[in-house]
Amino acid sequence: MSLRITCPTCGPRSAEEWIHGEMFDVPDSITNTDEWDVDRGFFHNNPEGLVQEAWFHLYGCRRWVVITRDTRTDEILS
């Protein structure tokens, strides 16, 4: 569903103005550098619940915003 993300500069704006940023989520248990690269490139945390993620306000002020979102409902908590 379409999100409305609140930008500190521009106010609430629809998701079409934003680019979803990467979530860096390599587990600490991975220490081997080759394994780290494979995990970084391909593997993911994909939680059904709260995630912290960055969005880039491309068609706006061009700044990064970090939000907390519930992936089950797309509700934005902060």
């Binding site: 379409s2 994909n46 979102r69 992936t71 089950r72």
Partner: peptide
Amino acid sequence: IDPQPSYSRRSDHHF
């Protein structure tokens, strides 16, 4: 697909 990872199955008007 919608751009953000999500389990929500709500449809939207933008689509």
